[in-house]
């Protein structure tokens, strides 16, 4: 069983997203440790990109702060290596195709594996283009995470059949960011996924409250939260770790009793 699968053996999974280097790499390390200590089941670590086209304003801001602060792919590999000494839950990188492609997919995946990363999420690499990356991922024991969107419809089965690690179900149209309501019929999407694979699926985009997380996780295997956490980091800066920890504890608690 891959380490990612283990994230889904502890009830419904809570998956926070954190942009590495926002506000600085040292704080990122403490945030990740706080997240793991407070019940996060898997952590998505964002490698910042200059032009994050799938992100809303909040995560765009995190990318900009991280790059302005001097975060680079190599520094982030070093950071993850340090984090891995204390944190055992699965961690995946979330970044854009060009960050991996320009580094060299094989070289990137080798280093990612060496520092203890378990998977890779590339929001601008759909099913049809994954051949640029999946070989390097497989050769280095990384799961290339598939995404399924509300518009996927006839594509869900095809994507699910080749999925590994977990499936990232995009809850809503548009970019990342907090939403007051999510109207997509997640249950219907999950049903098609289940008919085609036993890979677990977690829902992300727009989730910020414990109630939303519980609702989304009830219909799937977990909830992913990014922008709401980034807003806490934006507000508290270097003091963010304890606040992020408290938030994650509250969110995981909301999922704990779900079946």
């Amino acid at each position: 069983m891959s380490r990612i699968r283990e994230a889904f053996t502890n009830g419904k999974a809570f998956i926070p997203f954190i942009t590495c280097g926002d506000p600085d790499l040292e704080t990122t390390k403490r945030i990740v440790e706080a997240a793991a200590a407070n019940g996060a089941d898997l952590i998505e670590l964002g490698i910042p990109f200059s032009d994050p086209t799938a992100e809303g304003p909040v995560i765009q801001g995190a990318n900009l702060r991280a790059l302005t602060g001097g975060a680079t792919t190599d520094k982030i590999f070093d950071l993850v290596g340090q984090i891995r000494q204390n944190v055992t839950i699965p961690m995946v990188f979330m970044t854009y195709a060009n960050v991996v492609y320009s580094y060299g997919a094989e070289r990137f995946c080798q280093r990612a594996h060496a520092v203890g990363i378990d998977g890779l999420i590339l929001p601008d690499v759909p099913f049809e283009e994954k051949s640029d990356f999946d070989r390097a991922c497989q050769d280095n024991d990384l799961d290339l995470i598939s995404m399924i969107a509300p518009t996927s419809e006839n594509r869900i089965a095809m994507i699910a059949r080749e999925a590994s690690g977990f499936i990232y179900l995009v809850s809503s149209l548009g970019v990342t960011g907090v939403r007051s309501t999510i109207t997509t019929d997640i249950g219907a999407m999950v049903k098609i996924v289940r008919e085609n694979t036993d890979v677990p699926c977690a829902v992300g985009f727009g989730i910020s409250t414990p109630e939303q997380a519980a609702k989304m996780a009830q219909a799937s295997d977990g909830a992913i939260v990014g922008s709401a956490i980034i807003r806490i980091i934006e507000q508290y800066g270097k003091d963010a770790p304890e606040h992020v920890g408290a938030y994650i504890r509250q969110m995981k608690d909301a999922l704990r009793d779900l079946r």
Binding site: D124, P126, E129, M147, S152
Partner: peptide, 18 residues
Amino acid sequence: RGRFGIHGGQYIPETLMN
């Protein structure tokens, strides 16, 4: 698949594929 040699392709979010 919309390739010109090695160039081109469809590197976009799944939401836009259909």
